[in-house]
């Protein structure tokens, strides 16, 4: 428990790609964002079970091509699955329909089982798509890609500032926790612990905002007038065209498959 607590704030950085470059990382970030959202939409809004299953297969292939760290990926996916486990397990028993089997007094229906399977397939497929296509780029690159795709400039700026401060806050949090630990604080399930965490969060906010104001002052000294100029050289290459075409054809195929299957 304590180990997870101390490591908790470090896991935001996303996935390191093994071996430096993978097939996915050479592609244009905008193309990767579009494909991740597009394929996710096709899978999520599918009516039947076939398309989510095929989608999950594609997502696994994408993870393989992205050469993600296998253990980290499995851990992330398991976190999501633990999260939906209760709902997926409950669903067969709360959906009325044709009874397939009984557990004690509870009856599992075929409709409920199908629905539960669809949720599990879709949730996992989307997580794997975003881990494969998007978590492999730096968060700042994601911001630039979203800006180039037409997200409001202000929203992208909030994102860029957030990314910048994640590390700052994470470090500040660890410093404050270390100070508490040095004073023999051990988190337990009591009022004292919760109040101490409240003070911790309050202090985190106060210090962070002081820091934010100093940073703003420093930025103004360097000519900041309210616009962050995004400097990058995103250009669609031939490989991106091929990738987008392939993904588009796949998406279209899946939509047709869903319409025919349903």
């Amino acid at each position: 428990m304590h180990r997870t607590l101390e490591h908790a704030a470090t896991s935001w950085k996303g996935q390191p790609v093994r071996g430096g470059s993978a097939l996915v990382t050479v592609l244009d970030p905008r193309a990767r964002v579009v494909v991740a959202f597009g394929l996710s939409a096709v899978v999520v809004f599918a009516g039947g079970l076939l398309v989510p299953a095929v989608g999950l297969g594609l997502a696994c292939a994408a993870v393989w091509l992205a050469r993600l760290d296998r253990r980290a990926t499995v851990r992330r996916v398991l976190t999501v699955d633990l999260f939906i486990l209760v709902m997926v397990l409950m669903l067969p028993f709360t959906t009325p329909g044709q009874v397939v089997f009984n557990v004690g007094p509870l009856a599992a229906s075929a409709e409920g089982l199908r629905h539960a399977a669809a949720i599990a397939l879709k949730a996992n497929a989307v997580v794997l798509f975003s881990l494969a296509f998007m978590s492999t780029m730096e968060a700042v690159t994601l911001g630039h890609a979203l800006a180039r795709l037409g997200l409001p400039a202000r929203l992208v700026e909030v994102l860029l500032f957030t990314v910048r401060y994640l590390e700052v806050i994470g470090r500040e949090y660890k410093r404050l926790r270390a100070a508490m630990k040095a004073r023999a604080f051990r988190p337990r399930s009591n009022l004292h612990t919760w109040r101490s965490f409240g003070y911790l969060v309050g202090m985190l906010l106060v210090r962070s905002l002081d820091r934010a104001r100093r940073i703003l002052a420093a930025m103004k000294c360097r000519g900041y007038t309210g616009t962050l100029h995004l400097i990058d050289a995103m250009r669609l290459q031939r490989a991106d065209g091929f990738f987008l075409g392939l993904a588009g054809a796949t998406a279209a195929g899946l939509v047709v498959l869903d319409l025919v299957g349903a």
């Binding site: 428990m1 997870t4 607590l5 908790a8 704030a9 896991s11 935001w12 409001p152 202000r154 929203l155 700026e157 909030v158 860029l160 500032f161 957030t162 990314v163 910048r164 401060y165 994640l166 700052v168 806050i169 994470g170 949090y173 988190p187 337990r188 399930s189 612990t193 919760w194 965490f197 969060v201 985190l204 906010l205 962070s208 905002l209 820091r211 934010a212 104001r213 940073i215 703003l216 930025m219 900041y224 007038t225 309210g226 616009t227």
Partner: peptide, 30 residues
């Protein structure tokens, strides 16, 4: 977004990051 002007941007980013970090802080309960 209309409520955020340039001067407030760092503050909003900070709070966003705090929310993110807070969601990784686990507090014992029972």
């Amino acid at each position: 977004l209309r409520k955020i002007d340039a001067d407030r941007l760092p503050e909003v980013g900070m709070l966003s990051a705090t929310f993110f970090v807070a969601s990784l802080i686990h507090v014992p309960l029972g």
